[in-house]
Computed example of a mutant assay.
Amino acid sequence: MAKINGNEIRPGNVLEHNGGLWAAVKVSHVKPGKGGAFAQVELKNLRNGSKLNERFRSADKVERVRLEQKDQQFLYETDGMLVFMDQETFEQIELPSDILGDRRPFLQDGMTVQIEYYESEALNATLPEKVICTIEDTEPVVKGQTAANSFKPATLDNGVRVMVPPFVGTGEQIVVSTETMDYVERA
């Protein structure tokens, strides 16, 4: 593991701090008028999801942890657990369904998901950047309503509501960003 200075912490870094594994969510560098500069870091515990705000001075040393990333295929959900399979060894692992948070509806059967491991413990799951969804319900197109850059609400086949351009209709397939949960383009 590598030790880094407190001012080198970036969002997405995984740190070993206070005996736990923490992901840096937000980092802001502060230079007060009096005293030394420091990094104000919002940390999220990778094991239990708790949050912590911490100050790191440039002289502070923290352990940066590298997580091993493996692509695994989603098989099914059972009793609140998501079952994934390693595509090389065919081993199956179970992760709690809340590991994906509000992006859970975008998980589709057979989808390849990136699972992050620390030693042999699975800590995080990341969906692909973009997924294809079908629009189940949206308002019909009204001619002449496209003077401004307007969007209309639409419900997807997974129950998520997104804003789409007026030319997109019911039954069409669209590409949705799993990061921002926004419409990207037609599929």
Results as ranks from 00 to 15, higher is better:
3 K>I: 10
3 K>V: 12
4 I>A: 08
5 N>G: 10
12 G>M: 10
21 L>A: 11
24 A>I: 05
27 V>I: 11
29 H>P: 12
30 V>M: 04
35 G>Q: 04
39 A>W: 03
43 L>Q: 09
43 L>E: 07
44 K>P: 01
46 L>W: 15
48 N>M: 03
49 G>S: 14
53 N>L: 09
56 F>T: 01
57 R>S: 07
58 S>E: 08
60 D>L: 05
61 K>N: 03
62 V>R: 05
64 R>Q: 15
70 K>I: 09
71 D>C: 08
72 Q>K: 04
74 F>C: 08
75 L>S: 02
82 L>A: 07
84 F>H: 06
84 F>G: 13
85 M>G: 05
89 T>D: 12
91 E>F: 02
94 E>N: 13
95 L>M: 14
96 P>F: 06
96 P>Q: 12
98 D>R: 13
99 I>M: 15
101 G>Y: 06
102 D>P: 10
103 R>N: 14
106 F>K: 03
109 D>Y: 05
109 D>R: 13
113 V>P: 04
118 Y>M: 07
118 Y>H: 08
119 E>N: 01
128 P>N: 01
129 E>W: 01
134 T>M: 15
137 D>W: 07
138 T>W: 00
138 T>R: 10
140 P>V: 00
145 Q>N: 10
147 A>V: 14
149 N>E: 00
152 K>C: 04
153 P>A: 14
155 T>K: 15
159 G>V: 13
164 V>W: 03
165 P>T: 02
166 P>I: 11
168 V>E: 04
169 G>N: 06
170 T>R: 11
174 I>K: 00
177 S>H: 06
181 M>F: 13
181 M>H: 09
